[in-house]
């Protein structure tokens, strides 16, 4: 899958690129509006990551350009501005999703995958990891084809793990993914442990393997 990262901060751009390349994305970077336009008129991309504030103009102009040129790509806006009108402008302008800085890389990746599932052809709403199968349309999880009785939050958590398999996910990243802004100013993320314990129990009850491992001091990893 090909992605264009339009972000003027070179270090951040490199981080995103590093992370996504190991997830088998083909990444290209643009650092300004003009460069982005040039690349967009020559190449086609599956995804576009778009920063709103760019040194030579407004990211929303690029969004308008994308719509005017009828470029069929999933657009994910990244912005430090969480002003409401920005959010509305971005989504009304045709962006598929919006993420605010500072974001977690697994979160970014999960959003991209979610966008892909939404906009792709049939069958893509099934996410599998060995014996575990998730249907993102019906929010149903199966282990060895046996339906699990899990809450929507637990489903989200499992999906987040599988999408970012073999990655270390920090407790903060998990909390932000599941509860968004409500975890702001929450200093203690120990509650994640409880959540994961419940999920492990449910998978184990269906004779699933315990793929979730605790990484000392850092968080958790879904290891296949």
């Amino acid at each position: 899958m090909k992605i264009l990262i339009i972000e003027d901060n070179i270090a951040l751009s490199a981080s995103i690129r590093d992370y996504l390349e190991t997830e088998h994305f083909i990444c290209e970077c643009a650092f300004g509006v003009d460069e982005a336009r040039e690349k967009l008129s020559i190449f086609t991309y599956d995804f576009i990551l778009l920063d709103i504030m760019l040194p030579d103009g407004d990211g929303l102009d690029v969004l308008r350009f994308i719509k005017a040129e009828k470029i069929v790509s999933n657009v994910l806006i990244i912005s430090a501005r969480d002003a409401l009108d920005d959010k509305i402008n971005g989504l009304e302008g045709g962006a598929d999703d919006y993420i605010t800085k500072p974001f977690h890389l697994p979160e970014l990746h999960a959003r991209l995958r979610a966008m892909y599932r939404r906009n792709s052809l049939q069958g893509s709403h099934i996410v599998t990891a060995n014996e575990i199968e998730l249907d993102t349309n019906t929010i149903e999880a199966r282990v060895h084809s046996l339906l699990l009785d899990i809450t929507p939050k637990e489903f989200d958590l499992l999906l987040y793990f599988i999408v970012n398999k073999d990655r270390v996910l920090s407790r903060q990243a998990i909390a932000t993914h599941l509860w968004g802004d409500y975890t702001d100013n929450l200093a203690n993320f120990d509650f994640i442990y409880q959540h994961i314990k419940n999920l492990r129990k449910k998978i184990a009850a269906a004779n699933g393997n315990d793929y979730i491992e605790t990484v000392y001091g850092l968080g958790y990893r879904f290891k296949l």
Binding site: S15, Y19, P102, L105, S170
Partner: peptide, 8 residues
């Protein structure tokens, strides 16, 4: 964001 992504 740079700091967070780098530590990640």
């Amino acid at each position: 964001a740079v700091l967070r992504t780098k530590t990640e």
